[in-house]
Simulated assay, not measured.
Amino acid sequence: MSGGRNYGDPCGVARGLDIIGERWALLVVRNLLLGPRRFNDLLGGLPGMSPNVLSQRLRELTEHGVVRRRDLGPPARVHLYELTAWGRALEPILLEFGRWGSQSPQLPEGALGIDSLLLTIKVGFDPARAADLRGVYAFHIDADPYLAEVADDSVQLRRGTTAEPDATLTTDIDTLRAVCGQQMTMAAAADAGVLALTGDTDATRRLTDLLLTPFTPRNLADDET
């Protein structure tokens, strides 16, 4: 990496660490797995990271072909950061690393961000249940829209919207954490007016199962990201 260490070892592991081994680099990649982000959105999702360090990591990841910057141009004049195809190839590695890391006996203080919460759906997804969970589901979390699509034997997650989801969950990040952490039920959150679940009965059941199954005690022990 520019300004970073280089192991000087031709092994693929060492060469990979030359690219993504610096502190924060993999978390930047994690927070881009669901789609492009603006600089400030990335920074907001990485508590404790300074703007200067984020700028440096984005520059290094861009130089190595893991991330690219896309300029939307006028009138928006917005710069977006997104993974390249090579960068996206890190997804299964990160999900497996999350499974491994979740078994650590040490649990640091802090709350899961929205990207980590939703990526847990992918980590805990059982392909054998794909037929039962098939559908397109929208999550509106604070100001951010996300989509989960279950088809064949996989679930795909991304930032974005669709005109006609099968079911939609609308809430804020604190409520979502409470529901996933089993401090509050979906029904209690809806009664309190901090969560809305729309769609027909079967579709809302499928959305609920898709979201909450990875957070059951059994799955937390085995599959949490």
Rank of each mutant, 00 (worst) to 15 (best):
Y146N: 04
E164Q: 15
D144N: 04
A138M: 07
R159P: 04
L157G: 08
R158K: 09
G135F: 15
E164D: 14
T161M: 05
Q156N: 12
V155P: 15
G135R: 06
V155L: 06
T162D: 07
H140P: 09
T162R: 02
T161Y: 07
A148Q: 08
V150Y: 04
L157K: 00
L157Y: 05
R159V: 01
T162S: 05
P165C: 03
D152T: 14
D153C: 14
E149Y: 06
L147D: 01
L157Q: 06
D152H: 07
T161N: 07
P165F: 01
Y137V: 13
Q156V: 14
T162M: 09
T162K: 07
H140R: 13
A143V: 03
A148L: 02
T161Q: 08
D153R: 15
A148K: 06
E164S: 15
V155D: 10
D144F: 05
Y137L: 03
L147N: 03
I141R: 08
H140C: 00
A163Q: 14
A151N: 15
A143K: 13
Y137P: 08
L147P: 03
E149A: 01
T161W: 05
R159C: 02
R158C: 06
I141L: 11
A148H: 00
I141Q: 12
V150C: 11
T161K: 10
I141C: 08
S154W: 15
E149N: 04
D142V: 13
R134Y: 12
R158G: 11
D142P: 09
E149S: 03
T161G: 03
R134K: 15
D152L: 14
I141S: 06
V136I: 13
D166L: 00
T161E: 10
V150E: 09
P165I: 03
Y146P: 02
F139E: 06
Y146D: 02
V155T: 08
D152W: 12
Q156I: 14
